[in-house]
Design a protein around this nucleic acid. Structure first.
Length: 645
RNA sequence: GCCGCAAUAGCUCAGUCGGUAGAGCAUUUCAUUCGUAACGAAAAGGUCGUGGGUUCGAGUCCCACUCGCGGCUCCA
């Protein structure tokens, strides 16, 4: 007998060779029906794979990420099997599970696969799932694997196999389909009850733009049809939150073919919203000792040669602007840092001047690839809420912590609770991609790691994600359909001070080199507004809403009183409109609700007589009547509560 | 930049086999003067993204470009 230890530390004895599925059956029939995957001694394990020695066992259901992962991974194989039947001769790349669903990359080998084929693929997948073919794991030698996939002309699989270690190669087979795969998988495909092929896209083989482009078929599956219906409803809902749609509806921003792709036009309401965000951040930054500066939108090309940006990005940027005078070249500024370095250099600096914190809402232009442009989240002209902190090396951690405080405060004020943090480090195997000394890289990376630890921030560390001049800490927020966008960023830079020969005189009367911290809590005004819109579904917090109050007269007889109410509220800096259309009150309420109006004030005979307003709050309904001044005070207090720090 | 898909009224969309362009909402006018989520009637609104081609005839078929969408690659 062998001893199986469960997560609650209880131990039960089983026959050697027992499978996780059999263990589940011995515990409860319901568990056996719901279990999808397992781990044995922390290693992913098929439900049907025998356990031969004492081990600790975890069982995963749909609710567990590991359970979904196995379900979708097996679904990817099912998709491949269906594609193999429908389009004989297609060659397979890779087919993993992803955050919501799975995909398979295929070389269509002459077949034309379009969205019109989706129903047929879905039908075939369900048909195959119902055959309940077991998914069988086999260990295979490298030579046999190469022969097997080579005979079938699976060049992509062979390339993968050739890089694997012999003795460590497994295949999984269900029905007529065998795939190179590490697993784990479901015991059979029967639990896959609902299938949706979601989209089709091109994807480079192994993510390399110089190699073949394969067709990536995306799908999602569920153990119940009802769950697919819910998923579809959720996707519909998400589409309504799309910031591009909301931006148009709410008249915040627009694009024009005549201006150019990726160059947003901020409409009056959007510009006002942006301004409120800027004022908010300015106020905080003033408190933290930042000094506002303003720098031009272009700079001499030599500035970027000095910074190193020209060598790295020159070819892929907007090209230099030539002047009537021969030989002069200017670039649209792609970042603000070199300008701020020049500000630093305008006078000799002492250690007493540090940290020097220069802030600017700086508009920059970057030639992003056309296929990459996306609403306000990826544009060619945008404004960073930028600042550069010049400090002594021993001040880094302290300054870093203060920046984190600002970011946390902003996220809290705007209720971004589900953000993720990522520490982007240098890829030690690929040092030539970066500039700067090993020692400085080490110092900078350690400063970030220590600061996160001190704040108790659970940040993921990613190798190879650093900027070419230094490591960074990024904050990510998800959009309506789960795509991750980077918002706030903090970056440590030993490089630019070196390149610009920045110095300060220390207490020892010697020259020292300062360190630079780049930081942008919003990231960019454009992207931040985009994510804010999706996050709130357009229901912006009261202090940011383009219009805070609509006054709705019951009939035209009360239009004058409504205007008087609006006038008084505007005196208290409340953003107010009067809906004096010739419509019934029900209609006005509906329309203003649809426009996401935070407050509606209904005024008729009663209110006019008493100098009152009848208050209706979005999401809460009728709050009853009160004096105009009382309402104004309440609203001011509500705004104050939201933005105080 | 690459792969695939789309572009019709201000918005959302329909338009069959190639035969003179349609709906709802929004807008304007008229009527109504109304108490907490849509009163009614009428009118106006389109060089079917742009440029070429095929055809007696193109919103519809073909080509190119632009813009957009979903991914990939990239993201200072």
């Amino acid at each position: 007998m062998i001893n199986i230890t469960f997560p609650d530390n209880s131990v039960k004895a089983f026959e050697p060779g027992v499978t996780p599925l059999q263990v589940a059956e011995s515990l409860s029939p319901q568990l056996a029906r719901e279990v999808l995957a397992a781990s044995v001694d922390g290693q992913e394990w098929d439900l049907s794979r025998p356990i031969t020695a004492d081990a600790s066992l975890k069982l995963f259901k749909w609710e567990d990420p590991e359970g979904k992962h196995a379900f979708w991974h097996s679904s990817a194989h099912l998709l491949a099997e269906a594609l193999q039947e429908l389009f004989p001769g297609v060659k397979f790349g890779i087919g993993p599970a992803v955050e919501s669903g799975f995909y398979y990359d295929i070389d269509p080998n002459g077949h034309q696969i379009t969205a019109a084929d989706f129903p047929a693929i879905e039908k075939k997948m369900l048909e195959l799932a119902r055959t309940k073919h077991p998914i069988v794991r086999e260990e295979i030698s490298k030579a046999d694997a190469l022969k097997m996939f080579g005979d079938r002309g699976e060049e992509y699989k062979c390339e993968l196999i050739s890089e694997l270690e012999d003795g460590n190669i497994t295949t999984y087979t269900q029905g007529a389909f065998t795939d190179l795969c590490r697993g784990p998988h479901l015991p059979d495909t029967a639990p896959i009850k609902a299938v949706k092929i979601t989209s089709l896209a091109g994807a480079y083989w192994r993510g390399d733009a110089t190699r073949n482009q394969l067709v990536r078929v995306y799908g999602i599956t569920f153990p119940k049809q009802k769950m697919l219906d819910e998923y579809n409803a959720l996707m519909e809902e998400a589409k309504k939150r799309d910031h591009r749609k909301l931006g148009k509806e709410m008249e915040l921003f627009a694009f024009s073919q005549n201006v150019g792709a990726g160059l947003p036009l901020w409409l009056p309401k959007g510009a006002a919203l942006r301004d409120r965000l800027e004022q908010f951040l300015r106020k905080i930054q003033k408190r933290y000792g930042y000094l506002q500066v303003i720098t031009p939108h272009i700079g001499n090309k030599m500035l970027y040669v000095t910074s190193g940006h020209y060598a790295k990005y020159g070819k892929d940027s907007f090209q230099p602007i030539h002047t009537p005078e021969e030989g002069e070249e200017y670039l649209l500024k792609p970042m603000n840092c070199p300008h701020h370095c020049e500000i630093y250099r305008t006078s000799p600096r002492s250690y007493r001047d540090l940290p020097l914190r220069l802030a600017e809402f700086g508009t920059v232009y970057r030639y992003e690839q056309s296929g990459e442009l996306h609403g306000l989240t990826r544009v060619r002209g945008f404004t960073q809420d930028d600042a550069h902190i010049f400090c002594a090396p021993e001040q880094i951690k302290d300054e870093f912590l203060k920046v984190m405080d600002i970011i946390f405060f902003i996220f809290k004020a705007l209720k971004f609770e589900n953000f993720e943090a990522q520490i982007s480090l240098r890829d030690p195997a690929n040092k030539e991609k970066y500039i700067g000394s090993d020692e400085n890289w080490h110092l900078a990376e350690q400063a970030i790691i220590d600061a996160c630890k001190e704040k108790g921030l659970n940040a993921r560390q990613e190798l190879g994600e650093a900027a070419f001049y230094g490591p960074k800490l990024d904050f990510m927020v998800k959009d309506a359909i789960g795509r991750r966008w980077q918002l706030g960023t903090i970056q440590v830079d030993y490089n630019l001070p070196e390149r610009f020969q920045l110095e300060y005189t220390g207490a020892d009367n010697q020259k020292h080199r300062p360190v630079m911290i780049h930081r942008a809590p919003f990231g960019s005004m454009e992207r931040f507004v985009a994510v804010l819109l999706e996050h709130t579904a357009g229901h912006l917090p009261l202090w940011l809403a383009p219009e805070q109050v609509a006054v709705l007269p019951i009939s035209e007889k009360f239009n004058d009183y409504a205007r008087e109410v609006a006038r008084q509220l505007e005196e208290s800096d409340i953003r107010c409109t009067v809906d004096d259309r010739n419509e019934k009150i029900g209609r006005k309420i509906r329309d203003n609700q649809m426009r996401r109006m935070p407050y509606m004030l209904i005024v008729g005979e009663k209110e006019q007589e008493n100098g009152e307003v009848s208050v209706r709050k979005s999401g809460e309904g009728d709050l009853g009547s009160m004096k105009i001044a009382t309402f104004a005070e309440n609203l001011a207090r509500e705004v104050e509560e939201m933005t105080k720090f």
